[in-house]
Amino acid sequence: MSSPVLEIRNLCVDYGVGETAVRAVRDVDLTLHRGQVLGLAGESGSGKSTLAYGLTRLLPPPGVVTGGQVIYHPPAGAPVDVLAMTPAQLRRFRWAETAVVFQGAMNSLNPVHRISTQLLDVLKAHRPTSTAVGRRERAQEVLRLVGIPADRLDAYPHQLSGGMRQRVMIAMALLLEPQLVIMDEPTTALDVVMQRQILGELAQLRQRLEFAVLFITHDLSLLVEFSDHIAIMYGGRVVEQAASDRLYQQALHPYTEGLLQSFPALRGPLRTLTGIPGSPPDLRAMPTGCAFHPRCPYALDVCRSRLPPLGRPADSHAGRTVACWLHPTAEPATETRP
């Protein structure tokens, strides 16, 4: 269960080149294990979506991946670096191994083509030997998986509701049975009821089909419930990572604590929602030391001058990492998770 499916090592992503370049993702290390859900949370502008686009090489210009590796481990065969693939290799890799469900449920489908065209062209591109009948059956099968009647296959996107469109996108992601599905705020455009429904179905599908999920959202409450592990990003860096129940019970980084206090708990004693004062850092002029120190209620002198390394905290359990001077690392960690 603990074999990795995707390892991100020292990934750096810039917007622009040269003097004016802005570093949106800094030295991110993440490991995603087979069949697990890794949640990635942070405020707007923390670099979580940029990370997802960077590792799939879908980043539109002026975004540039400036360093690092993205190692994909196929079920059989040697690991490959996604960032070093040739265009042809990349085309074969995309969707077959990692599929993506994007933020905009409304705009992810091409408005002028039928759903069927958009589902079938994936199959046609990746399984050129398949028959037309076989492709159609597969498309109907995945639509049924997400609870859409197969006769909607020939509908146009504008004939479907927002929720149905996002289901179609999820169905599309499952077409080729990928090892990894990246979900970039897949339910943000939907109302909360639809959100809940779709997430519930996703959790079931994931158990049945056993794909790993990289789930990106700014809604930490959603992640606590839905994911196995959570990584918190701030100013382009991962500042804390832990199993989700442990993170929820005891957040180590003050930023995580702030995020957790930004939504109410359903049970337990009432508490005042505090939120986090201040606003996310300006990526063009990052604070020295820890990027969070201007907003941190516990900031020490050392926070202003030195960047805390991400590592296993000496004063806590194994199996989690944090980058904070309040919890100095036991030893400089190279691997993000044991």
């Binding site: 085309r91 074969r92 993506v100 062209d121 994936v122």
Partner: peptide
Amino acid sequence: AEDYITVAHAKGLGERRVALHY
């Protein structure tokens, strides 16, 4: 810059198909 173009790229479709059909 539309989302469906990014999706088409992510689907691993050929460049020509994305450019013309999408």
